[in-house]
Design a protein around this nucleic acid. Structure first.
Lengths: 362, 362
DNA sequence: ATAGGATGTGTAATCGGTTACGCACCGGTG
DNA sequence: CACCGGTGCGTAACCGATTACACATCCTAT
């Protein structure tokens, strides 16, 4: 027994009124018949004592916890914060609570949290899986969740099909749109900067494919020299400093065949590129246009403000939550878990600012 | 009964092994004697079935939920996000989970969440109370929590003593430091911009007092004309656009007795002031120095970068969590609830950038 | 007058762990 | 040989809400 004033229980009410707790329950929940006077007596006593049914007990006896786990790398990143915010909103509307789990880009932490969420018998988990080199490890834990009857929806990082529905930004479409935008502005030599094109980190690869598709559509040849790994994978994940390959970027920007536009599909990277350009005495967008991806807060305040793709983090979170609730609602029906797992794409919006030149006259 | 595969219970294990569930419990928890062979049998079976004790059931029978409620205006604000992050870290270390509650500057939402947290029997609540005009309403709900034996620690907004420990930034000291910094840089006419000096919103008032104290210490007279309400209260809370009184700020900056420095103790406000100055063709810091408060993300990226006070949000969150756990640990001892409620202050750090001129040579 | 239905309420079991209590058996001591 | 403490384990109750089932009343219809 913990400390503190013990809460009044349904039995306390019953005892004081000389009725059974069942009667009290019926009066409160109004789902079975009680005589009007008894009902009134009970409600008065409830009011008087400020009785509130314990959700802990309800959870146990009903088998439903009305709780969701939300597992993200870190809430300190504004993109993830917006995503969590959207989820919390949907959950609140449906009287669900969310347990916040920051994995801090640590696989061990992620696993411990997933285990905890299982033990807490959450009804669902919204997960931004930490992908690194291989998704096998999370996959194992995700599978355990699913087997335990917990609905899981993955977000953000398209994973190899693991039987779980996923919601992710339309990286391909957005990158293609941005590249097309640059083409429309007259650019013919457009560089693509990345942080490693590992197969297991799909987002970056998808953006790259979008870039390539736009080039192809515009009839432009791909120049391998314009595709540069400009920072380490880690620095993209966490926005960490340090692993930026300034030399390569400088070399690119000073080569005789230098690009007239640089698409760095992560804002932190794009901003660093602008710094390099400033260092080289080159102007943005006059000498080189720069485009980013994510629309982090500072992107609106760089000099010049960064043209970028708005990461639809709210929409991703909101849609993922909806999807989860849909599945929760239809659970009990025939679970067609064998169906092809869905991967929903959320469209992204271009944010045209000044780092790529004048706003195009559409 | 919810859908999904029903989890194995301690009774399942017991039945399969032909022992009592008590024995299984003892083998798992190792807190009472069991014969080595029985213990091994049980542990093997646990391993085999992947049994994990239900925290829902444990919560009910132990009366402890190992859960905290964290109630903040909105996680989308980076200052609050950092605070929540710090809390989550401390909670994770102690095997506690946190339920995230965004009140969205809505008193009704705050109350509904506090009620929910009570019903969920959380052990503690970390709350950034929404203060507006009167704190009476939250006070009522906070009191209910305390009466229910839930530990509450308020953060961020110094409240009139309500018997609950509080952790807040040292607004007074920080504002004094910043003002002194401006004085050291040679400024004699330092304006103070605010968003209303309502008594019920203590932070702003404390910063104002810090400003006044520094002036007094420097032997400078206060000029009421230099103290201007530059935006609405709401716009400060949420960083909302629109309620910025540009005309007043312009008038101040163009008056013949115009200030040489402006202390706008909220970064969003300071940044708007810089925009006004740019509009007037005045340079920062050459014509007018500008200082802010909070060190929001964009403050490092304004032109010039903003000199400001770093809001110690992580420290506030972390300290509040520690305080909560301390109280949780000592609960059961003699609760001296009648003691003077503590209000802890967390020191803030000046972030000297370029909006106030050269870094002072200390 | 009496069967049949609606009505109001209580009893006891259940959800999954936890725990007070007690019992049987062991070896050792007086 | 009787007694005692330690050991290993089971029974049953409990946490607080929920629910299947049953049992009295009372009203109505035949």
């Amino acid at each position: 027994m913990a400390s503190g004033a013990t809460e009044t229980t349904i039995h306390d009410i019953a005892r004081r009124l000389n009725v059974s707790s069942t009667t009290v329950w019926r009066a409160i929940n109004g789902r079975q018949r009680v005589s009007p006077k008894t009902k009134q007596l009970v409600l008065d006593e409830v009011e008087r004592t400020g009785y509130r049914p314990s959700l802990v007990a309800q959870n146990l006896s009903s088998g439903r916890t009305r709780t969701l786990g939300v597992v993200v790398p870190t809430i300190a990143n504004s993109v993830y914060a917006a995503l969590v915010r959207a989820i919390e909103q949907k959950a609140f509307d449906r009287d669900y609570s969310i347990i916040l789990c920051n994995t801090d880009f640590d696989l061990d932490r992620e696993q411990r949290y997933l285990d905890l969420l299982m033990r807490r018998r959450v009804e669902g988990v919204l997960l931004i899986p930490f992908v690194k080199e291989t998704a096998t490890v999370n996959d194992f834990h995700v599978r355990r969740l699913v087997q335990a009857g917990i609905e899981v929806v993955c977000m953000q990082q398209p994973l190899p099909a693991n039987g779980v529905p996923q919601v992710a930004p339309d990286n391909f479409g957005a990158a293609r749109d941005m590249t097309q935008h640059l083409v429309r502005l007259g650019h013919r030599r457009i560089a693509f900067l990345h942080g490693g094109l590992q197969a297991w980190h799909a987002s970056m690869g998808e953006r790259f494919e979008g870039y390539r598709a736009a080039l192809a559509e515009a009839g432009l040849a791909e120049d391998p020299g314009l595709v540069v790994e400009a920072c380490s994978f880690e620095s993209i994940l966490a926005g960490v400093e340090g692993a930026f390959y300034a030399d390569r970027v400088q070399a690119l920007l000073q080569s005789k065949d230098r690009p007239t536009a640089v698409f760095a599909p992560v804002d932190v990277l794009a901003i660093k590129v602008m710094a390099v350009l400033r260092g080289l005495g080159m102007r943005v967008p006059d000498d080189v246009a720069v485009a980013g991806f994510d629309d982090i807060v500072m992107s609106a305040f760089t000099d010049p403000p960064l043209t970028t793709v708005r990461h639809p983090s709210s929409a991703v979170g909101g849609r993922a939550a909806e999807l989860l609730f849909e599945r929760l609602a239809e659970a009990g029906g025939v679970r067609t878990d064998l169906e092809t797992p869905r991967l929903e794409r959320v469209p992204c919006e271009l944010v045209i600012r000044r780092s790529c030149g004048a706003e195009p006259v559409e």
